[in-house]
Design a protein around this nucleic acid. Sequence first.
DNA 1: GCAATACTATGACAATTATCAGTTTTGAAA
DNA 2: TTTCAAAACTGATAATTGTCATAGTATTGC
Lengths: 230, 230
Amino acid sequence: MDHSRCENCIVRQFNSLRAMNKEELKKVSDSKVMKTVKKGEPLFEEGERLNGVYCVRNGVSKMSKLSPNGKDQIVKLATKGEVMGQRSVIAEEHANLSAVAVSDMEVCFIPKESITTTLQKNPNFTLEVLRHMAHDLKEADDVIVNMSQKTVKQRIAEAFLYLKNNFGEDTDGFLALTLSREDIANVVGTATESAIRIISEFKKKGLIHTSGKRVAISDERKLRDLAEGF
Amino acid sequence: MDHSRCENCIVRQFNSLRAMNKEELKKVSDSKVMKTVKKGEPLFEEGERLNGVYCVRNGVSKMSKLSPNGKDQIVKLATKGEVMGQRSVIAEEHANLSAVAVSDMEVCFIPKESITTTLQKNPNFTLEVLRHMAHDLKEADDVIVNMSQKTVKQRIAEAFLYLKNNFGEDTDGFLALTLSREDIANVVGTATESAIRIISEFKKKGLIHTSGKRVAISDERKLRDLAEGF
DNA sequence: GCAATACTATGACAATTATCAGTTTTGAAA
DNA sequence: TTTCAAAACTGATAATTGTCATAGTATTGC
């Protein structure tokens, strides 16, 4: 089986491409371009005009926006199965966020034409994309509430739990996705030093342990309590 | 002309209902129920199962979520032309946010069936809803960045500018939408006392002036500079 | 292997923001 | 109009978070 064909791609099951019919999928598959992106390399930049979307086959990308104070706020981490750039293509706007790989990635670039024509012709596909976006919107609303109502300590605890739930742990029990301290700070919206300080505090309290920049959760229960505000 | 009919409702031009065809619109209009909601009254509560959406004809509603610390974070202000509850109906989930009127409102309740059947049949409508949701998602992402990277002072300055741009001013130059200090605090995600203190500071600096709980912008330029971080 | 460089870590201090405890003002109901 | 409860406001103080300076630790490229 040719795994480079969208028709056979497992990743498709996770995203809205599963609502495409055979011929639509064939067209997408014929027009797509597979790319590998190394950790640290950008996929696209805020303000750029996207002429397609990126379907993630492997690896993780941070999607962030530069705020006027010069700091990068990470709004979302996109992983296997997720489609990046969809929003901009649908709204016919320039990209609102930048996408940079935080681990080595394999992505498929899909030219926007195959997406937009399917959107106009296949209501099932459109509805599926809509459902996904409705879900993203709920998540974004929840992030707003967390950002504005929780302390930095709570947000960092939550971030570790999020990383465990979404990316799992390696064989040694460390979080499978390793982010730099700066990236962690940019996820929770705080200064890098503050993030480091709180991570050290978590270590002292036995909630986590670390090895280099890798982090492992030692006491998930306590971490969860802390995140909830107890 | 019967203005109680969706077909003739001006508000429809602002939202995705404009992509409905005549018969779909007729069905919606036949099944809808007009309601008036007094300031302070809820439209729906977080966690509730919605069996329809609310189309705003007049007035403004705050859409908020209770955070574990007991504070209400206002995520969005919905006004004339906006459709509330759409996200929950599309995702077939319970409401993620509560909606409470912040001024007297006139809304139309539209049972979800007329929405969902149109979503399945009319791709134009689905695409239109999708575009609106894409726009909402961008706005939500921007709010995340503001919330996590700007100071309370900046966020309050921005809130006043937002209120002026979106709801305008009355004949005396005061912001047409008057929010309580507590609501302002809940929009920017801070303690009520902090919000009041900063509002007082703005007054002393001549950026705004007030009369009771009403606020007027005196120096928009300076307020904008402040919001941008200068 | 070694220098250059980026990242992690910690201390000292300043700025911001929250909390608590009160007083004053406002506006709606009697 | 008076009365009363809610909302707005202020001060004092504590807690949180940011900034700057500096030192240690990995990592990379030569």
